[in-house]
């Protein structure tokens, strides 16, 4: 309803509250199933993980102590953090110009870009990860190019942190672009015309008007990419190396190879807390509802 008054808003307060009270069983009926689903599929598993992390194999906080004292594990934490930062920065640098063109052009260029971005957005990340396996693999085009140019044997690309960073950047780039685009599209073209008429050359107009107005998109997109990256699972495992593990690789390794459920759970809890903290800080300053534009 575009700007219209809802019928309920037009009623006198007394009538409205009575109607609301009468409606309340229905409200509970509506809230019931989702609450149940959330509890069963979300709260319960998380609770289990928490409990496991301090009870398996026996009741203690030893797992947490290990995470923060054993260099191998602090290295994983640091590596996860740094990789996420790098991927976020790469996505921002690559995504900003694309989103800018998409938002500022209103012709076929914009449509084409949006189609491409949406297509890669909807292509499963497993598929895209496998694509990198092929591209960077020993029989792939990169190796082929090295040999064709006579540059000798190609360097090892696959199963390096380079490959996993590349893969994650590729997979998360559409999220960044769409988050930026959503905000940039709302910047009035008249704003930039006004800036020009007031004497601002294109660069000055960009720096003084467009860039600041696009910052919410930068924050949203970066947060989205960073948080997704922290817990990214498939791509680092398939493309990366156990030597520079991300958190999710560590969890996987602990369970698959060592059956160390308690320790793996503790690592998962740390990941959960880190993600939660970031969201809390963001929510404090920007509001979670703006995450999707």
């Amino acid at each position: 309803m575009a700007g219209g008054l809802s019928p309920a808003a037009a009623l006198p307060t007394e009538v409205r509250t009575r109607a609301a009270r009468r409606r309340s069983p229905a409200v509970w009926l509506l809230l019931g199933p989702p609450s149940l689903v959330l509890t069963l599929l979300f709260m319960l598993p998380i609770g289990l993980v928490l409990v496991t992390s301090i009870t398996d194999p026996r009741m203690s906080l030893a797992h947490y102590q290990r995470i923060f004292t054993v260099p191998l594990y602090t290295h994983v934490m640091l590596n996860t953090f740094v990789t996420s930062l790098v991927v976020t920065a790469l996505c921002l640098v690559l995504g900003y110009p694309v989103a800018y063109v998409m938002a500022r052009r209103s012709d076929w260029v914009s449509t084409l870009l949006l189609t491409i971005v949406a297509m890669s957005f909807w292509t499963g990340f497993l598929v895209r990860t496998y694509a990198w396996l092929v591209i960077l693999g020993s029989k792939g085009p990169v190796t082929g190019a090295y040999q064709a140019l006579g540059l000798g044997p190609a360097p090892q690309l696959l199963f390096t942190s380079f490959a996993s960073t590349l893969g994650m950047t590729h997979i998360l780039l559409p999220y960044m672009i769409l988050a930026l685009f959503a905000v940039m599209k709302k910047i009035e073209p008249d704003q930039l015309k006004a800036a020009a008429s007031l004497g601002a050359r294109p660069r000055a107009a960009f720096a003084a008007v467009f860039l600041p107005l696009s910052l919410p998109g930068v924050v949203n997109g970066s947060l989205l990419v960073f948080v997704s990256c922290l817990g990214f699972f498939v791509t680092p495992i398939l493309l990366g190396t156990p030597r520079d593990m991300m958190i999710s690789q560590l969890i996987n390794q602990q369970i698959e190879e060592l059956l160390a459920w308690g320790f793996a759970s503790a690592v998962a809890v740390i990941l959960l807390i880190a993600t939660g903290l970031i969201l809390v800080v963001y929510n404090r300053f920007a509001g979670l509802d703006r995450l999707w534009g």
């Binding site: 008249d190 006004a194 008007v209 107005l213």
Partner: peptide, 20 residues
Amino acid sequence: RKPYERNIGVVFQNYALFPH
């Protein structure tokens, strides 16, 4: 001449004030 090389003030219908 480009708009920023002219010395002309413009007031837009939607004002186009810089919100930030």
